[in-house]
Amino acid sequence: MADEMADTRDIVQELLRRIAEGDHDGAAGMFAEQIDWRLSWPAEGHPEVPWIGHDRPGPRWPTTSAC
């Protein structure tokens, strides 16, 4: 666990260094190109978080353009 913490800390420090130096391409290069956000939730959803599920269409929260 300590090694994982050191690895995470090193990665974050490197990201912040690149951002501080204005190395935007280098900072962006540290991120994955494609991420699979699918989670292994039950198809019918989960009672604690009813807004998730495999068959849920688009956003269900009201959105505003006032930011």
Score class of each variant (00 low, 15 high):
2 A>H: 02
2 A>L: 11
3 D>F: 02
3 D>P: 04
4 E>R: 14
4 E>A: 12
5 M>I: 09
5 M>H: 00
5 M>R: 00
6 A>E: 09
7 D>I: 01
7 D>V: 06
9 R>S: 11
10 D>T: 15
10 D>H: 10
10 D>V: 01
12 V>W: 11
12 V>E: 13
13 Q>S: 09
13 Q>L: 12
14 E>C: 04
15 L>Y: 11
15 L>P: 05
15 L>H: 03
16 L>R: 09
16 L>V: 12
16 L>K: 12
17 R>V: 07
17 R>T: 15
18 R>Y: 10
18 R>C: 00
19 I>F: 08
21 E>G: 08
22 G>T: 07
23 D>I: 10
23 D>C: 05
23 D>T: 14
23 D>N: 15
24 H>C: 04
25 D>Q: 13
28 A>S: 08
29 G>E: 09
29 G>A: 03
30 M>H: 00
32 A>I: 01
34 Q>N: 14
34 Q>L: 04
35 I>T: 15
36 D>T: 06
36 D>V: 08
36 D>M: 07
38 R>S: 10
38 R>A: 11
38 R>K: 06
39 L>N: 00
39 L>S: 06
39 L>K: 02
39 L>M: 05
39 L>W: 07
40 S>F: 00
41 W>K: 00
41 W>E: 01
42 P>H: 10
42 P>A: 06
43 A>S: 12
44 E>M: 11
46 H>M: 11
46 H>Y: 02
47 P>C: 00
47 P>W: 01
48 E>S: 07
49 V>Q: 12
50 P>L: 00
51 W>G: 03
51 W>A: 14
52 I>F: 10
53 G>V: 08
54 H>W: 05
54 H>L: 07
55 D>L: 05
55 D>C: 06
55 D>M: 02
58 G>H: 05
58 G>P: 04
60 R>H: 07
60 R>G: 14
60 R>L: 11
60 R>N: 09
60 R>A: 09
61 W>S: 03
61 W>N: 02
62 P>V: 15
62 P>T: 13
63 T>Q: 13
63 T>V: 14
64 T>R: 01
66 A>S: 14
66 A>D: 14
67 C>M: 11
